[in-house]
Computed example of a mutant assay.
Amino acid sequence: MNRRQMITGGVALSLFGGNAAMAQAMRPDFLPVEVAIRPDIAPNELHVLPDSFMLFWTMPGARAMRYMVGIGRPGLYESGEFFVGAKKEWPSWTPTNSMIERNPAYGEWKDGMPGGPNNPLGARALYLFEPGRGDTFLRIHGTNAPGTIGTAVSNGCARLVNDQAVDLYNRVPLKSRVVLHSQSV
């Protein structure tokens, strides 16, 4: 474990209890695991801890399901408080103008890519909204690139492997609170 992993594991430990730090050390398996969390964290919320590439779905009884995720590249991750404003199975994907500017190859899909196994949003997506702003174009979604889990490579979204995205999608109702915690770097 390097210094950064130790620090980010400590942040996860302080927020969500000892099992999160242990999960940090066991990252290579990427399997979801139920963990104990602090009792003051409300159930039925999503929390993304970008420094440790962890997403928690909080449950009653000071428990949470912990998933490993990929997050937004430096400068594209947006912390804040959101809510799940829409949920989609096999969502279509349309790159934003900023995404096309950063990667002109996305221009091929400026009118959208239909949902399916080759779609970058994967099998399921939770659409993040803010009051007064509406759709933020941030998503918690599946991915057809499982090797990107545990890395900062996306255009600002959090991604899970597809089967875990389906599991999370089935647990999370519309209007659930979502907290994308700040990065330490």
Rank of each mutant, 00 (worst) to 15 (best):
V11P: 02
T136E: 01
N97D: 11
R159G: 04
V84T: 14
P74G: 06
A152Q: 07
V69Q: 07
G112D: 06
D51R: 08
Y127Q: 01
W90P: 06
N155H: 14
K87R: 13
N170R: 14
L138N: 00
R73D: 08
S79A: 05
Q183A: 15
A21H: 12
P91R: 00
Q5K: 06
P117H: 01
M65A: 15
N19W: 02
N97W: 00
T8Y: 13
M99W: 04
E45L: 08
D40R: 02
V35W: 05
E89T: 08
D29M: 05
N97H: 01
D111L: 12
T96M: 09
D40W: 04
V35D: 08
V11S: 10
P114L: 09
G61Y: 04
N155E: 11
A12W: 10
S14N: 14
D135N: 06
Y67H: 11
A20M: 12
M99C: 08
R63S: 08
R73K: 15
A25K: 07
G112N: 02
R66I: 03
R133Q: 14
Q24R: 15
Y67K: 09
D167H: 15
K175D: 09
K175T: 09
A12N: 14
D111Q: 12
M22C: 01
D163Y: 04
L76I: 02
E45S: 11
I37Y: 02
A12G: 15
R63D: 04
I7V: 14
E130V: 05
P146F: 09
M1K: 03
V153G: 01
L180P: 00
D40Q: 05
R133M: 09
R73F: 06
N97P: 02
Y67E: 13
P39W: 07
A36F: 12
P104C: 01
G142E: 07
D111A: 11
M68E: 11
P146S: 02
P104K: 09
V33Q: 07
N19T: 01
D135Q: 00
D111G: 12
A36P: 03
A21G: 15
P104F: 03
T94N: 00
P114I: 06
F82V: 11
T94R: 13
A165L: 13
V11G: 05
F53Y: 14
K110G: 09
A123I: 03
V178M: 10
G142T: 02
M1G: 15
N119Y: 00
N162E: 07
T136D: 03
D40G: 05
A62G: 04
G134R: 02
